[in-house]
């Protein structure tokens, strides 16, 4: 018999396997050769794949570069207003509905202020897709840098400074190289978060097949059009891509890497 103390641990397997694992299995179970043929034969599928990887990689590079700058403030300017605002806002994209993020980007970089860049400003271009991904994934890179800095230790910086380095020199010469793993982890986290982004991308980048469509929006479009089999095939492909990235992150940061950096 299960006592009340065992209840939670006894509930874990059914909850987890029914609601988390089973849907993924269901996806694979519904994979059909015809669906695969449809998706893989569709040039829009390939352009969506290309856009996804290109924009996610660009967003992750931007994310890491920005996070490295943030790390400097974390280390040397923790009392500054800039740091406080940035640190506070790092948690925002996690809590904010990503449709709201997309709308915010659309208002900021759309026609209203950026009319001089084109009819829709930056909106509905691959740049917009990248910026949407950057917006939602940068905080992960910043958190990864923050976590890495806890381990580097201030001693390194202090010694470097007694040897004549200014804070900026010590940061570039000593801290950033010591952060290598954290930066790689941050890149992969930001990349995987970008791969999975749908709402912000569709609001700001649009869902133009062959132009700004990404895998997430491709799946959505196929389902809307009633092409369930192609949607399933694209989804399984997407899942495989995500799993590969997650596996890479785990092998680099140890088990639980994604959650740790997100928490």
């Amino acid at each position: 018999m299960i006592g009340r103390y065992e209840l939670l641990s006894a509930l874990f397997p059914p909850l987890f396997f029914l609601f988390i694992a089973f849907p993924l299995v269901a996806l694979v179970l519904n994979l059909t050769p015809r669906g695969l043929a449809q998706a893989f034969g569709d040039p829009y599928f390939w352009s969506a794949t290309f856009n996804t990887i290109l924009c996610a990689a660009a967003a992750a590079v931007m994310g890491v570069a920005t996070a490295v700058g943030f790390g400097y403030y974390h280390l040397f300017k923790r009392d500054s207003v800039i740091y406080r605002i940035a640190d506070f806002l790092n948690d925002l994209p996690v809590a904010l509905p990503h449709t709201v993020a997309g709308l915010a980007l659309l208002l900021a970089f759309g026609r209203r202020y950026f009319w001089w860049l084109g009819e829709n400003g930056l909106a509905f271009t691959l740049v917009a897709v990248t910026l949407a991904m950057f917006f939602v994934s940068y905080p992960l890179a910043a958190r990864a840098v923050q976590a890495g800095l806890e381990e580097v230790g201030r001693d390194l910086v202090e010694v470097a400074r007694t040897l004549g380095d200014t804070p900026a020199q010590a940061y570039a010469r000593v801290v950033v190289p010591a952060l290598r793993e954290a930066l790689l982890g941050g890149f992969l986290l930001a990349f995987s978060r970008s791969l999975s982004e749908f709402a912000a991308v569709i609001m700001f980048g649009g869902n133009l097949p062959g132009k700004t469509q990404v895998l997430a929006s491709y799946v959505f479009t196929r389902v809307e059009a009633g092409d369930l089999e192609a949607a399933v095939a694209a989804s399984v492909f997407c899942m495989a891509l995500s799993l590969a990235v997650v596996a890479l992150v785990r092998s680099l940061t140890g088990a639980g890497g994604l959650q740790r950096a997100q928490g």
């Binding site: 230790g153 390194l156 202090e158 010694v159 470097a160 007694t162 004549g164 380095d165 190289p177 010591a178």
Partner: peptide, 20 residues
């Protein structure tokens, strides 16, 4: 003066070498 302008040689409590 900041540390970089003092020319002191510092060996911290645990020898902190630049790992890279």
């Amino acid at each position: 003066r900041p540390p970089e302008d003092r020319r002191v040689g510092y060996v911290p409590q645990h020898p902190t070498l630049f790992p890279h």
